[in-house]
Computed example of a mutant assay.
Amino acid sequence: MDSSKGKRLIYVSEDILQKMETAAKKEGMSVGRFLQEALTGIIKANDLGCTPSKLKEMLQILQTQRNFGEVIVPRSIFVQFMDLVVDDQEREKLLEQWYECGRWHGTYINRTFDDPLTVFKLFLESMGWDLNEVEVKEEKGSIMLICISGTISSKETEMLSKFIEGALNGMDHSIEKKDIMTGMIILECTNERLIVSV
């Protein structure tokens, strides 16, 4: 460490250094400045409880949401919108749309990421449903997904459960059992590809 300048020498692989040089050139800055800004961002994210590996996944989630053309809607407005659905036929149609939307998301995540269930868990945590707990338990081809919230209504729970069912189906999972009540969704499923291969 150079005590007069308060700097420390850190070894970086040639591959990463070349990528940094390319990225820095694209941004019109020196490698040193680019690295300092990148590290400052990582430290700020870490202060917010987001580790470097999780930060990478969160950025992928944000990019995925952008690819889906999603927009941020305040929850209060969303709840008001759902209250406008009074007819059973309209309700069923809306639930079908939530399912199809989930299936589209699940298919995309399954094709894009190496660990789709982990990415989907992060996706649920960042969707703004005010979920207190999102847990994925895997055991020998069987999966249990648990979502818990102390604030969402029965209508919100129903819509979210349809979205999750669609997403799991899009990721090649077959729903075997479900337990849904206000603020709690528990889905047990198996991987269809594993069933076929057995």
Rank of each mutant, 00 (worst) to 15 (best):
S4P: 00
S126W: 01
L62F: 03
L62E: 15
V73D: 07
K121F: 00
L117Y: 00
M159H: 00
T112C: 00
K54I: 10
K19V: 09
W129K: 03
I152N: 05
G128Y: 04
G6P: 04
E90S: 15
T22G: 02
V85F: 04
W104Q: 09
T40R: 15
D83I: 00
M58C: 13
L94I: 11
E21F: 00
K137T: 01
V134L: 05
E70T: 12
F34N: 05
L55C: 11
M181Q: 12
I77T: 15
M29A: 06
V196I: 13
G28R: 09
G141M: 00
F68W: 10
L55S: 10
L95N: 06
T40P: 01
R91F: 01
R8E: 11
E21A: 08
L122G: 13
F78H: 12
M1A: 07
D114R: 14
N132S: 15
D15G: 07
N46C: 03
Y99T: 08
L145D: 01
T157W: 02
S53H: 03
L145H: 02
Q65R: 08
Q97R: 12
M20E: 07
E90L: 06
D115V: 11
I42F: 11
D83E: 15
G102T: 08
A23F: 10
I42V: 15
D115M: 11
R193T: 09
T22E: 15
L194Y: 05
R111L: 07
K178N: 08
V79T: 05
R111D: 14
M181V: 07
D88S: 11
V119K: 10
K162N: 09
G69Q: 05
I43N: 09
D88T: 14
K5R: 14
M181S: 15
I143E: 01
A24E: 06
R91Y: 09
Y108W: 15
D88R: 10
M159S: 05
R111A: 14
E92W: 04
F120M: 08
V79P: 00
D115Q: 04
F78Q: 12
L94Y: 06
T107L: 08
E92H: 10
H105F: 13
G49F: 04
K137C: 06
E158L: 14
L84Y: 07
L35D: 00
E158F: 03
E158W: 02
A23D: 08
D2G: 11
N169V: 14
L131Q: 05
I72L: 13
D115G: 02
V196G: 00
D15L: 09
D2Q: 01
Q63M: 12
L17R: 14
F34K: 05
V85R: 07
A23E: 03
L124N: 01
E125P: 02
V86I: 03
E165Q: 10
F113T: 12
E96R: 10
L9Q: 09
M127N: 10
W98K: 08
S126K: 07
G102W: 03
K162V: 02
N191E: 13
E57I: 15
L160W: 03
Y99G: 06
N67H: 03
M20L: 14
T157V: 04
T64M: 12
F81N: 10
S13D: 15
L160M: 09
I109D: 08
R91E: 12
E192Y: 00
D179F: 01
I195N: 05
C189Q: 01
